[in-house]
């Protein structure tokens, strides 16, 4: 067995290869901290006048939930440790945790395996996704199915929010909720598992013209999966913040109709 070239430097890259993983660590950490604080705040998630419900509490299923926010009933105990959207949040978290884009992002930036291309792995041994627990990444498809159902619930929230004390209403909050839902759908549909289920698994596109068209459309979105992953983190946090601000009366919603 011949030996590799004896090159002393661990990497000879001269560009700022550490910048992208650094931004990822900062961005993801900031989001996770914000989301954790909000989920355990158990307050300021519902604007009764306009029916605004933040996606972090949808659907609200604990005894603590205010009326209106809980369209599926409130059957879980109101301990502070239980998130009010305990049915949906775990699945959304797992959907993103097993997402092919986020996997790339955190394997590189948090796990340093590898931190950047042609930069050495931060670990002595490596078995990849061949054994437990990382073998579980193959469950991504289940979480995609769950995320698609949750997107339906979020869509209902956005439609239900066209409301005011006088009946129909429309304000800036509605625009924010709608944009968030559209982006969530785009992120969910652009998922690699979705692309596979829609048409990628076929061997003969010519026998399935409709699925081929759908696959082409999903492929177009799939190229943008990374951008959509970050955009939806932004829209989720912003939507939640806006609803919190209105619910806490920090400022008033800009109303266009009623």
């Amino acid at each position: 067995m011949r030996a590799r070239a004896a090159i002393a430097a661990k990497t000879l890259r001269t560009d700022r290869w550490w910048l992208a993983p650094l931004i990822t660590v900062v961005g993801l950490s900031a989001w996770v901290i914000y989301a954790t604080v909000r989920v355990f705040m158990h307050d300021f998630y519902w604007v009764a006048d306009y029916h605004y419900l933040t996606p972090f509490y949808s659907p609200c299923v604990t005894e603590r939930c205010v009326e209106g926010a809980s369209h599926f009933g409130s059957f879980l105990p109101g301990w502070w440790i239980i998130p009010d959207a305990a049915l949906t949040l775990p699945f959304l978290l797992l959907f993103r945790l097993t997402c092919y884009y986020y996997r790339k992002a955190y394997y590189r930036s948090f796990w340093l395996s590898p931190p950047a291309c042609a930069v050495p792995d931060g670990h002595d041994s490596y078995s990849g996704e061949t054994r437990f627990p990382l073998l579980g990444q193959n469950l991504h498809r289940y979480f995609f199915y769950a995320a698609a159902i949750i997107s339906l619930i979020n869509t209902w929230d956005a439609i239900y929010a066209f409301h005011s004390p006088e009946g129909f209403g429309f304000g800036l909050g509605n625009v924010i909720l709608l944009v968030n839902v559209v982006m969530l759908w785009a992120y969910t549909i652009s998922c690699h598992s979705c692309r596979h289920i829609i048409g990628g698994r076929l061997k003969h596109f010519s026998k399935h013209p409709v699925r081929y068209k759908a696959w082409t459309a999903v492929s177009w979105l799939n190229v943008r999966h990374m951008q959509l992953a970050w955009i939806t983190l932004g829209t989720l946090a912003f939507t939640d913040f806006y609803v919190m601000a209105i619910a806490a009366n920090w400022f008033n919603d800009l109303r266009f109709i009623n």
Partner: peptide
């Protein structure tokens, strides 16, 4: 299963084949 889709193969491909998105995933 060893692949953890960190996409370096796609980054270096001189033929710009989308190795990860179109092949491995």
């Amino acid at each position: 299963g060893f692949c953890n889709i960190t996409k370096c193969c796609t980054e270096v491909c001189p033929e710009h084949i989308k190795i990860t998105d179109n092949g491995i995933i």
